[in-house]
Design a protein around this nucleic acid. Structure first.
Lengths: 331, 331
DNA sequence: CCCCCGCGATAGAACGTTTTACTTCCCGCG
DNA sequence: CGCGGGAAGTAAAACGTTCTATCGCGGGGG
């Protein structure tokens, strides 16, 4: 294994100079720099990142912890993160919490051990303490798709209450009077806030928000949506169904159609996230679009700014508004 | 920042003993072990992974390099990888090559710098030399969704020629005589092999394989599929369209329907991968299913076996057969 | 002519672990 | 009673960088 010393010997300079070529090429005379660079490529040297991290006290790696990597929503976020990170020469360690706090904890521990420069996280629960521990270890944290826990922290979020309200307002405007809300675990903030928005919309129309029928699925997947639809069918269909995300909605749609229920004639249906597949489904799905890719990009830019320019960095709380796309499922 | 020395001092032992507690708890007397463990949790110590990697010579991290993280196919693979890795205490660094060799090179360099234990890769081109360089640095490589370059290497693949043949044979059996193949870049092996399979199927039915109309898209996305469909419509529709993946097929489907072309009456349509959304689309999509999650799981198991048991490890070349699912789009 | 300054490069310590060789202690056996 | 040997723990070197202090050198100002 060729190290910086071998390169130094081969180029007839000291290891320190090689390090300078690597890290601040401006500080070294052009002639020697070229000699060192020649030696580097000749010997096929690649820097030992761990040694560098150990000595320098920080790495060029960030962590990304998401709730469900199988969800196109997070995939798009991840794409935004990856793009920015790789532009700035950072690597991304991916952690999938799959909605489990345990798994999230394990992932965060791995990230802490790696001394990542910072962490982007969509927390799966509401326990800021775990994130505090990261900050104590000098790891910056930016919340993604989640409002800030505290002022001295960046966060990039989308207005979920507003989104839930707009979605259900739309359903009510189409004439529905009974609405069901198919949601993921109510430990997930997004699910809770979208429900609040839904209730608010009902209240605003003069309906009793207690009439909102809530079906809580264990996971936010199409399969879980199918099961939820079976429940709905068994216990009497509402006039409209609002789902906490598109995966659930697609599952509900599939199960309803299979049972001979017509959408939107018998039941109107709204999803959330406006994933690419929403518009392509059997009955194209009305949904709330969020700026996913941008969410990832901006969060990463904030994080890396916080890491690279700690003194000039200004913490920001960014809140996007989701956008309603009405399609066949709510005609 | 609390180090192993602080823990040692706090527990009244030497740093070496703390290291032993961490790495081979069996070697240390129960009483001292407890004392050390108490100190660890009391001080909130977390091991410095880089120092550990530096000294031990290897890390507990693997790299995963995929062609398109936006494609549910790869997402499912990644889920399989992540599950196995996290079960065995490994972290995963994700790299998205987005089909670009440059980006893939950059990602591999980052992985090499991190001295990852091994790399799982779906190569986006056919240049084994880059992977050789990794192996020279002592990094094991397992190919995912790609046959092995060499015997002393693990690989987990799916029979793409067979899949392409089965898909087109199905279209021909449904009565189509003219077939178009909508594919991604023909630098991607999967695209090439599925075309070969398609040609073989035509030959087997007594048709001239040169009659297979090939439309090459720059990316394998729904958007690219829509554009390809526009081309098809402009230049005269075939009786059947076979797409190199479901994303392309969904795009083609969307564009065809929008143009008033009926599927399958006017044009039969086949996708590939059988992503979850294939069955849920406007006209449910016939497709070739591949064991994606298993692909990721098995590849990771092979990789970690190779890393952890280098002497007993037997290299394997695994080849799965894809499975045809016929749905409305080819009725 | 000498002193000082800055540029370019160097020597060597330091980062936090793991590992090897070594010490100490105690037990059992001849 | 002495000796061998295992168990438990320690001291110190080593891993490959980065960084701080330092040095030599040439040039410009006093």
């Amino acid at each position: 294994m060729v190290s910086i010393k071998d390169v130094a010997a081969h180029a007839g300079v000291s290891p320190g100079t090689v390090s300078n070529v690597l890290n601040r090429p401006g500080k070294v005379a052009p002639a020697t720099r070229e000699r060192v660079e020649a030696a580097i490529s000749e010997l096929g040297f690649v820097r030992h990142g761990s040694a560098s991290t150990l000595r320098a006290g920080h790495s060029r790696t960030i962590g990304l912890s998401v709730i469900d990597i199988g969800n196109p929503f997070f995939t798009e976020v991840a794409a935004g993160v990856e793009d920015v990170a790789s532009e700035l020469g950072y690597a991304v360690i991916l952690g999938n919490s799959a909605g489990s706090q345990d798994k999230e904890d394990r992932n965060l521990r791995v990230l802490a051990e790696h001394r990542v420069r910072g962490v982007l996280i969509t927390p799966s629960g509401e326990d800021p303490a775990r994130l505090e521990r990261l900050r104590e270890h000098g790891i910056s944290v930016v919340l993604v798709d989640h409002p800030a826990h505290r002022p001295d922290q960046c966060a990039v979020a989308v207005d979920d209450v507003g989104g839930g309200r707009a979605a259900v307002a739309h359903l009510l405007a189409k004439g529905a009077r009974s609405v069901a809300y198919v949601t993921g675990p109510l430990t997930i903030r997004q699910c809770v806030e979208r429900r609040e928005g839904a209730s608010a919309a009902m209240r605003a129309t003069g309906l009793d928000p207690a009439g909102l029928r809530v079906i809580e699925a264990m996971t936010m997947t199409a399969r879980a949506g199918e099961k939820a639809a079976a429940d709905l069918i068994a216990s009497g269909l509402p006039e409209a169904v609002f789902c906490a995300n598109d995966l659930l909605a697609l599952g509900v749609l599939r199960a309803l159609l299979r049972a001979g229920v017509r959408v939107p004639e018998d039941v109107a249906l709204m999803g959330y996230d406006d994933i690419d597949f929403a518009a392509a489904s059997t009955v194209s799905l009305s949904s709330m679009r969020q700026p996913t890719y941008q969410l990832g990009r901006i969060a990463t830019e904030l994080l890396l700014d916080e890491c690279d320019n700690p003194e000039t960095h200004a913490h920001q709380h960014i809140m996007f508004q989701p956008e309603l796309f009405a399609r066949e499922s709510t005609q």
